[in-house]
């Protein structure tokens, strides 16, 4: 019961945020609405019993990625629909009729394909009679990360280091 309510709230948040990202004319608002989507996904993780995943979603997206995106939007001229107020005249295109038509057709093709694939898969999916009760996944995930998946874990740390250094080097202003 409680989980159903949480699921419905999260689902509404996800769908509303996603539609907002698609149809918003203003990039700043799109970023903010994406935050709603990401919180909704964190709520869905919580309903799924993936507590650690939900918390990492909150930490990484809300704290890191969204602020980064907002900064990037601001540094590159702000929202798209009005003349910019920090001396940057150029207005960025947010898509035209042509691009939306192309996108719609692509989506149609993709969605039909994916629905087809999904249907054949769901036929073989047996509904479990009773799902296991929720348990804490933190210790299990921790153990798995340093035993079975230790290579991926280490590689991802190298990836993050590379991303850190690379982002710093790329974004540094070079004069002369």
């Amino acid at each position: 019961m409680f989980q159903d309510i949480l699921f419905i709230c999260s689902a509404i948040l996800v769908i509303a945020g996603t539609l907002g990202v698609v149809f918003s004319k203003n990039l700043m608002r799109a970023c903010t609405l994406l935050l709603g989507t990401l919180f909704g996904v964190a709520g869905l993780y919580a309903v799924l019993g993936a507590d650690f995943l939900a918390a990492s979603q909150l930490v990484i997206y809300a704290g890191g990625v969204i602020i980064l995106m907002l900064f990037a939007v601001m540094l590159t001229g702000g929202s798209a629909d009005k003349a910019n107020k920090f001396g940057i005249e150029k207005i960025m295109g947010m898509g035209s009729v042509k691009t939306y038509v192309i996108a719609g057709l692509t989506v149609l093709v993709f969605s039909l394909t994916i629905m087809k694939l999904l249907a054949s898969f769901l036929k073989g999916y047996q509904k479990l009679d009773e799902l296991p009760a929720f348990t804490s996944t933190v210790d299990k995930i921790g153990t798995m990360l340093v035993t079975d998946h230790v290579l991926a874990f280490e590689i991802s740390s190298i990836l993050l280091l590379g991303a850190l250094v690379g982002a710093a080097v790329i974004a540094r202003p070079r004069r002369g």
Binding site: L27, V73, M92, G95, T99, Y100, I102
Partner: peptide
């Protein structure tokens, strides 16, 4: 596909 802004 539809947006032309890189951040979008």
């Amino acid at each position: 596909v539809a947006r032309k802004n890189i951040i979008a």
